[in-house]
Design a protein around this nucleic acid. Structure first.
Lengths: 191, 191
DNA sequence: ACCTGAACACCGTTCAAGT
DNA sequence: ACCTGAACACCGTTCAAGT
């Protein structure tokens, strides 16, 4: 009984998300797994959407740790690979975190803001190292992130490996983009 | 009464999708708008998911037309801009078409396959023109598509313009990628 | 061949109580 | 402060009929 039922509700929701996707998360089943009535969640969250926002915030916070201490370029590459692996391993959680948020959650917004700041820093560091072309770091970070997001989302939905020959693996696409960008950074005439 | 109720059901579903998103599409409201009972859809589709697959297939087919007759590179750029605009204008339809398909639909698979083939052809043409780097056209097409998809999906979810300064407009990201790729294609040492 | 109406087993949410 | 049980207004889907 040390955990508190609030945390137990979040646990149950995340568990259901992994098991049967978003549609498997019902407040009634969440309550059942947490050992309370189907109604108890309303004493901790304003709505089902608010509970899901808390799940998303915790998920995003947990994934924001553990950036190993290599070069900015290597760390950026690892982070984008993690991003893609996240979408493939836990597609329902991924969609919850990076889909549209139907509820205002300062918690979730703060976690997203700090993740964004880390990414921009990595990009700026890689630019300094000559591994990425110069220019607005926010814009370039958005480019890299959008590629990783698109590859991850398409792969998770089964829309990437069109011919099964594996020439469009999402991780390969991340590597391709970073390699192209390094080529641009080191081409003559860049400043 | 020339339209047939099957088409009327698809119309109604698409309309509801635009109005209130995916959760607004209920078979009961679809039937109401089509002038039939809440039960009539089952005489034309095996399930709600099958109806939605038909909506997606029609949507994808309609968007696959109208590729203007410019150069491959210009047409590719226009197609990716259309892709992004599609996600911003009709996010619910876009998610339906490019999200995970919960139902096997040969109709939908065929439309997706032909759209993919067109994209690969455009990329191959742009490679021949020296506007894109050489290499596997399928893989490069996946790269370009993944960037457009990620930028579109993030923008539609409100996760792109983090600071409101507009330096991460999804259309700009498409242009940035194509410009980088042209730089790579025209850099010395590429073959 | 196409449609209807009742019924079933679910939902999220609200409300009046209970401790 | 936290929880329960009944109730309400919905769902998707099935089934027995109707023409």
């Amino acid at each position: 009984m040390v955990t508190g039922t609030r945390e137990a509700l979040i646990d149950a929701a995340a568990q259901l998300l992994d098991h049967g996707g978003a549609e498997a998360v019902t407040l009634r089943e969440v309550g059942r797994r947490a050992g309370v009535s189907h109604n108890a969640p309303y004493k901790h969250f304003r709505s089902k959407e608010a509970l899901l926002a808390s799940v998303a915030a915790r998920e995003l916070r947990e994934h924001s740790l553990g950036l190993s201490g290599g070069s900015p370029g290597a760390t950026l590459r690892a982070a984008m690979h993690d991003y893609v692996a996240w979408a493939l391993t836990s597609p329902a959680r991924f969609k919850l975190v990076f889909g549209a948020w139907s509820v205002e959650s300062p918690d979730l917004a703060a976690a997203a803001g700090s993740a964004h700041a880390v990414l921009v820093d990595l990009v700026a560091g890689a630019q300094r190292d000559g591994e990425l072309p110069a220019g607005d770091a926010v814009r370039l970070a958005s480019l890299v992130r959008a590629l990783a997001h698109g590859a991850a989302d398409l792969a998770a939905a089964g829309h990437l490996a069109a011919d099964g020959k594996g020439n469009a693996d999402p991780q390969h696409l991340v590597d391709d983009l970073l390699a192209y960008l390094r080529t641009v950074a080191q081409a003559p005439g860049t400043r």
